[in-house]
Design a protein around this nucleic acid. Sequence first.
DNA 1: GCCTGGAATTGATCTATAGCAAGGCAACGC
DNA 2: GCGTTGCCTTGCTATAGATCAATTCCAGGC
Lengths: 229, 229
Amino acid sequence: MASTNGNLVTGILANLPMFRHTPAATLASLARKSRTLHMPRGSTIARRGEELPGLMAVAYGLVKLSLRGEASEKVLRLVGAGDTFGEAVLFLEKPLPVDISTLADTLIVVVPADPLLVMIDSEPGFARAMLAAMSQRLHALVTDFEAATVHRANERLAAYLVSLVDPDGPSTAMLPASKTVIAARLGITKETLSRLLRRFAQEGMIAVGRRQITLLDRERLNAAARGTG
Amino acid sequence: MASTNGNLVTGILANLPMFRHTPAATLASLARKSRTLHMPRGSTIARRGEELPGLMAVAYGLVKLSLRGEASEKVLRLVGAGDTFGEAVLFLEKPLPVDISTLADTLIVVVPADPLLVMIDSEPGFARAMLAAMSQRLHALVTDFEAATVHRANERLAAYLVSLVDPDGPSTAMLPASKTVIAARLGITKETLSRLLRRFAQEGMIAVGRRQITLLDRERLNAAARGTG
DNA sequence: GCCTGGAATTGATCTATAGCAAGGCAACGC
DNA sequence: GCGTTGCCTTGCTATAGATCAATTCCAGGC
């Protein structure tokens, strides 16, 4: 469905870091070539092996990129409002290496590949913004890779909990998804997550209430994240 | 040390995929601004937290990018002749997330960041080549991530062994590094690697001689890599 | 040829985390 | 209210792979 509400789409694009320095006119033109994709919670957007119709920007909702081994799954990334995915497959002939689905009612802006490729050559600074975005993604992946391979489950969880809350704000945060999904994100089973949360709570480091987590002792959590606890 | 042998450097750069479509004159100019870095086996090129002086292209030798947890280490990537590293940190303010050292006597061409950034804006097609290179890297990392998190040690090893040999060439290949390093690359200990190799050999899937590996049954190896064995 | 040091093998344990099974709890429709 | 349906929790057991501890195997230097 071609968007009848160009302003909305333009606004969403304008707030993405990679378009921070793109002139308004160019952005409006890009928005006109884009379309929106509305998906209810639990929909499959694409499966491993398929292709993506363009760069995907999440306007609202929550998208899950995951790897599936028989039975269990590993969540590679959760993409929320104001974030994008699909950059890498734009510039490559390769098919998607992940499954993509929604964890909430979600609106996505689909920016087709062609105008983006044109912009890379014509719009000064855009290529660099895109490279910076991809570098960031690469960096984040390396960090996750490190967590998954050299740190243990309790360290990963501690680091994750700390990352959930604003460093100098209140110590309370909501989990962005169900504990089952969070567990898959952390590369552990829901059972292990449950046990670790209880242990942390018993040790007085956190308090848990449904999806709400309160950090009671950030010092010790940070130590635990480093394996120094 | 500024290179006194511009031809050599130009040739090395010309053979990198990302410069495939760069005009010879531009390449020569870039080569003039580059320098070479000769490091004996076992040298540390940079440590986590430091910065890199530019894009690093390996002319000959072998470079190891690794993550270190106390005691054990995980090898993220082995970079051989004709390959590059350090792209991501060029476009980001972030420090290196890995330790970098040489596993053999190595010559590196260091291409400083500034002229590359200029080329991104001025040289049509170069930005896209760079984006393609980074996409490839991202894709490879996702593949490794999947291997490390959803596949088991024997599956990872089977997949790795298959990837070592040319699909329609001879069934024999040399390990690119010591078994200790290969083990760290696969995210297992050298002891486990040793046991798995023996098991594969006993089951008639491979033959092992020092660093030489011969695949005797690719079918079963592929099955093992998929966990279907 | 003989030593010497790093790499590889092998065996004997140990442990973190998975897997299974059986509830428990909150939310929602009727 | 009261089942039904999805999470989530909790206890028990199983296991892949790590860790510890000896050897053994080479390759290179003298």
